[in-house]
């Protein structure tokens, strides 16, 4: 094993980890407040990726600015799906919300497919690179990770430094109590859900800037799955947990590749998937509330 390999593993594990973190927090915000698992999560990420693709590809809008568009689009999609669907299911059995969010995901995928087709698309936003230890450090990937970090900080500030955030946390702690002190719980639900969708769609843009390829209607599914693993790792509902778990997961994936690739006759990158899910099951069994919660 060469030094360059280890360096690349840490560097790219951390960078993709930050992206994973941003792409997971939305799931956590929604679960934290509404106790709903958004099974259609990945489809919202895909919508964000298309937003960047379309705005940059056909209008030339600089990719970082497309994130703002994604946030707006996320707000619209969030409000629509909340008032049309989720609102009616807040007190329904878990089964109903699991299937409903799933159906929303399918609807988004098929709509995007009907508009843009099922072709895989991509774009080129080349910022150059630096070479260290025979490893190319790709600037556009660094930029994407930084933008993701900014999004996370903004979300953190919103939840821990504003009145709205206070109300949200109050609802999480004690729904009845929050009602008694005059918090409109329904509105908090609507806002939290929408906030979760906004950050998820925005994370799709960040992801698109990071990868710049592989954008197609079904690209989100893998992030739903990875999102679940990361969310459970960090504790469903925890924002900082999602971020830390995202970075850890990125490192874990890359490091397990490095280790597995030493074994002959197996396919390491494919197996990292199995290992990730094994990790998920282990955490679920030993500490279902996540690694960072007491």
């Amino acid at each position: 094993m060469e030094v360059g390999q280890i360096f690349a593993t840490i560097l790219y594990g951390t960078l993709i980890g930050v992206i994973y973190g941003v792409a997971t927090v939305g799931l956590n915000v929604i679960f934290g407040v509404l106790r709903i698992v958004n099974v259609g999560h990945g489809a919202f990420i895909m919508v964000g990726a298309y937003t960047t693709l379309v705005l940059y590809g056909s209008l030339g809008v600089p990719p970082p600015i497309t994130i703002a568009a994604s946030i707006l689009l996320g707000a619209v999609l969030g409000l629509i799906t909340y008032y049309l669907v989720i609102k009616h299911l807040v007190d329904a059995p878990e089964l109903a919300t699991l299937i409903a969010t799933f159906a929303i995901g399918i609807l988004l995928q098929e709509t995007v497919k009907a508009i843009y087709g099922s072709d895989t698309r991509g774009f080129s936003w080349n910022l150059g690179f630096a070479e260290v230890l025979n490893v190319n450090i790709v600037y556009s990937r660094l930029a994407a990770a930084l933008l993701g970090l900014l999004l996370l900080i903004a979300l953190y500030a919103l939840i821990y430094r504003t009145k709205l955030g206070l109300a949200m946390r109050a609802v999480v702690q004690d729904k009845e109590g929050a009602m008694v002190v005059g918090i409109n719980v329904d509105r908090i639900y609507a806002l939290s859900y929408t906030l979760g969708i906004m950050i998820t769609v925005a994370s799709g843009s960040v992801l698109a800037i990071y990868l710049q390829s592989g954008i197609h209607p079904y690209m989100g599914e893998i992030y739903t799955l990875k999102g679940f693993v990361i969310a459970v790792m960090g504790g469903l509902g925890s924002i900082i947990g999602a971020f830390v778990a995202g970075v850890l997961f990125g490192l874990f994936e890359n490091a397990s590749y490095l280790i597995l690739s030493q074994i002959e006759g197996i396919q390491p990158l494919v197996l990292t998937r199995s290992i990730a899910f094994l990790l998920l099951l282990t955490i679920l069994l030993l500490k279902p509330t996540g690694l960072f919660r007491r």
């Binding site: 360059g4 593993t9 790219y12 993709i16 893998i222 890359n254 396919q267 390491p268 990158l269 494919v270």
Partner: peptide, 20 residues
């Protein structure tokens, strides 16, 4: 002689060793 899963979105781990 290495492969990646069907829906992979980041191939960096499998490609980086080729640099050396």
């Amino acid at each position: 002689f290495k492969s990646y899963p069907a829906d992979a979105q980041d191939l960096t781990p499998v490609l980086q060793p080729l640099k050396d």
